[in-house]
Simulated assay, not measured.
Amino acid sequence: MANWYDHPQYFDMVFRDETEAEVEFFEQAFERFTDIDVKRLLEPGCGSGRLVVAMAEKGYDLTGLDLSQPMLSYLRTRMRRRKLDGTYVLGDMTAMQFDQPFDAAFCTFNTFRHMLDEASAIAHLRSVADNMRVGGIYILGLHLIPMDADPECTERWKASAGGTKISVTLRVTDFDRKRRQEMLRVSIKAVKRTGQIERIRSDFPLRIYTPKQAQRLLEKVSDVWQISGIYDFDYDIDEPREFDNDLTDAVFVLRRV
């Protein structure tokens, strides 16, 4: 079994359908929540770079940071093929340092939850703030898990591109509220145009946040981040959400103060 972080092409296919809605929301958020003329963008934990590519195609100056060299190499190749410029940094989301500040940043679909303790989460939020212009915004998306949520969860979906078809299963294999950690298993079956089959499986932990836990965390960095808007994964800029127990797929628009 191969690790999906070493196969960026499949990672990219899994989330590709979300890209258009995310990009539209980002640009709407730039218009609504900051007075800055947004040009320089950062994506910490950029992975395969689907959003880096999409925003670069819109004319923005992109920097992507990730811990995975295969992901960054894949992103660099994609950008080069599209004749797009970008900056690709192999680095830690909790200790970033750049020569120039950014106008905005984004991190969606639970990458934030890879930081498994509160100290790391706070260090990341402060690191983004240290590299952000005052008045710039950080769009942060993550799943929240209410106290009455069923810890048993399995999701399945399919995707295809370039003659390759993949079947994806996402399953929670362990759930520990006391330690605030769940273990996820991602299994992928890829059938290539030639008929060759490749199977990939990855197990990784994610930190658990209830809405109240997420609220308390953001309060601890309120000296550098103000919550300007709360949304969900529908990405409807005209339908803000409340910070309550019904908020499960959260998208926070944080403004640098």
Rank of each mutant, 00 (worst) to 15 (best):
W4L: 12
T154Q: 15
Q213L: 14
L41S: 06
A2H: 10
G91N: 05
E20S: 15
L218T: 01
A105R: 02
L254W: 06
D203I: 02
A95E: 14
Y88V: 13
E198M: 12
V52Q: 04
H143D: 15
V251W: 04
R179C: 11
R32D: 08
R193N: 13
R179D: 14
T77I: 09
K189N: 09
W4M: 12
F243G: 00
D99C: 02
C153G: 08
T173A: 08
D234Y: 07
V14D: 11
F243W: 15
S160G: 10
L142R: 01
K212E: 14
S167E: 15
D203N: 12
T87P: 00
M147H: 12
E118L: 08
V134P: 12
V257W: 07
I36L: 15
T173P: 03
E182T: 01
L140C: 00
T164M: 12
R256Q: 06
T111M: 05
D85M: 09
G47I: 02
I227P: 03
L67M: 11
D223T: 08
A250P: 07
R179K: 13
L65G: 00
W4K: 00
E31I: 07
I188L: 15
L75W: 06
T63E: 08
R16T: 09
A123F: 08
F204M: 11
L42K: 04
G195Q: 12
A119Y: 08
L218D: 00
P146H: 10
R207F: 02
R207E: 06
Q9T: 10
V186M: 15
T63W: 06
T108S: 05
E242R: 13
Q97P: 00
